[in-house]
Computed example of a mutant assay.
Amino acid sequence: MVAGTVGTAHAVRLEAVRKVYGSGDRAVTALDDVTVGLRRGAFTAVMGPSGSGKSTFLHCAAGLDRPTSGRVLLGDTDLSGLKEDALTALRRRRIGFVFQAYNLLPSLTVRQNITLPLRFAGARPDEAWLFEVVTRVGIADRLDHRPAELSGGQQQRVAIARALVTRPELLLADEPTGALDTRTGRQVLGLLRDLVDTTGQTVLMVTHDPVAASYAHSVLFLADGRLAGEIFEPTPALVVERLTRLGEW
């Protein structure tokens, strides 16, 4: 891995993104004219109350959901111009995903779970890179185990390794510590922050937890589908204070 620094270039950018579900009287606007760029090589958290648009923001950034209007750029690639097959191929190559549910296949070993995205893409593992990833996330001695033989924290580390094995431009984490106890959750958050600080990996994390958000370089706030500010070098106290004032936006 090559050490990186927080730069000004954007790994992903949303431009005037609007996302409406349904139509007529039942229409719900999940995102409303959102324009923001996520810095390459930075750890960004997204927060907001339930229904603020956090999940839709992540899904649009990942190309899992198409905006009703506006566009999403992954690097220089405009996702709105891609057909579904091309979007699927792009996600496999350029985006890694970590979810609250680890989504590991119980019949496969740790190694097989980690390399599954490469198998889907018809690629062979780079053994040196695989070793570096599993060593970094702390599971190099668990490659022959199956998920049922691992703790929750170890399973989430496997999921992070799986997300990193394709060398993604962007790693998306959706409540990655939601199923973990406090101590294990903080270990996983520390791992994510270390990956950003030492390798230049870009991470976007959706969370409801002010402590989790404090591991990020910056926190974006959403309210009623709109951007409601950003803070840098967050602390749990700063995050809580801003959350209590979202109604002012």
Rank of each mutant, 00 (worst) to 15 (best):
M1L: 14
V2M: 15
A3N: 13
G4S: 04
G4Q: 04
L14N: 05
R18W: 10
R18V: 14
V20G: 02
V20D: 10
Y21M: 01
S23K: 14
D25P: 13
A27M: 04
A27D: 01
V28M: 03
L31C: 03
L31E: 01
D33I: 07
D33Q: 03
V34E: 00
V36E: 12
A42N: 01
A42F: 00
A42W: 00
V46Y: 01
K54D: 00
T56G: 06
A62H: 07
G63A: 09
R66L: 14
R66A: 12
T68G: 00
S69D: 09
G70D: 08
R71N: 08
R71G: 02
T77H: 09
D78V: 06
S80Q: 14
D85L: 11
A86S: 14
L87V: 05
L87P: 02
T88N: 12
T88H: 08
T88F: 08
A89K: 12
L90W: 02
L90F: 03
R91L: 01
R92F: 09
R92D: 05
G96A: 07
G96K: 02
F97H: 08
F97D: 06
A101P: 02
A101D: 15
P106W: 08
L108H: 12
L108D: 01
L108T: 04
V110T: 15
R111K: 13
R111N: 05
R111P: 06
Q112S: 13
N113T: 10
I114S: 04
T115L: 12
T115M: 07
L116G: 02
L116C: 06
L118N: 02
R119Q: 13
R119I: 13
R119P: 07
A123K: 15
P125C: 08
D126S: 05
E127H: 11
E127A: 11
L130V: 03
V133H: 03
V134C: 10
T135I: 08
T135H: 14
T135L: 11
G138C: 07
G138T: 03
D141I: 08
D141M: 09
R142S: 12
L143A: 09
H145T: 10
A148D: 15
L150F: 11
G152A: 02
Q154G: 10
Q154A: 13
Q156N: 09
R157K: 13
R157C: 13
V158F: 11
R162W: 10
L164M: 14
T166N: 15
R167W: 07
E169S: 14
E169M: 14
L171K: 10
A173W: 00
T177D: 06
G178C: 03
G178P: 06
D181W: 07
T182S: 15
R183E: 15
G185K: 05
R186C: 10
Q187G: 15
Q187P: 09
V188R: 13
V188Q: 09
L189Y: 05
G190V: 11
L191Y: 07
L192S: 05
D194Y: 03
D197V: 13
T198H: 15
Q201E: 11
T202N: 01
V203Q: 02
V203A: 00
D209Q: 06
S214E: 00
S214D: 01
A216I: 00
H217G: 04
S218W: 00
S218V: 01
S218P: 00
L220I: 13
L222A: 04
D224W: 10
G225F: 02
R226Q: 11
G229F: 04
P234N: 00
P236Q: 05
P236G: 04
V240P: 03
E241Y: 03
T244G: 11
L246I: 08
L246Q: 06
W249R: 15
